[in-house]
Amino acid sequence: MVMLVDDNIIDLTISSKLIQFSKLFDEIIVFQSGDEALNYIKTNLKQPNLLPRFILLDIQMPEMDGFEFLNYYKKLPTSFTDKCQIAMLSSTLDFGDINKAEANHYVVKLLRKPLSTTELQKLL
């Protein structure tokens, strides 16, 4: 299962459609804010079959941005975080953001929008 977190509903639709076509994941869950995504994870911690094994996280979001999400994420139990990978997804060309994202222990890569499913596949 893959979890998409992005405040932009259009990008959320595009990314999930692209992933559907790629058939890389059998299930896709989408959230429009980091808060909702974290709540979902917390309430389902005891049901591993409802938890994602991969998260695609947008950087620029109002209220809680992608980096803030990561700060909360690292407080989650390792039983979950050890089995889950995160890639950040952004239209940024900012090297500062790229370095910051890839320096984070939990982030495997920063992917550029639009999502390239071949790039995504390389990470799995």
Binding site: N8, I14, K17, L18, F21, S91, R112
Partner: peptide, 21 residues
């Protein structure tokens, strides 16, 4: 440039989807 690029990237993503469809 940042603000302009975000929706543009969405358009490019949609074209990608059109290809896949």
């Amino acid at each position: 440039s940042h603000e302009l690029r975000a929706p543009l990237v969405s358009v490019i993503g949609i074209v990608e989807l059109v290809k896949m469809e």
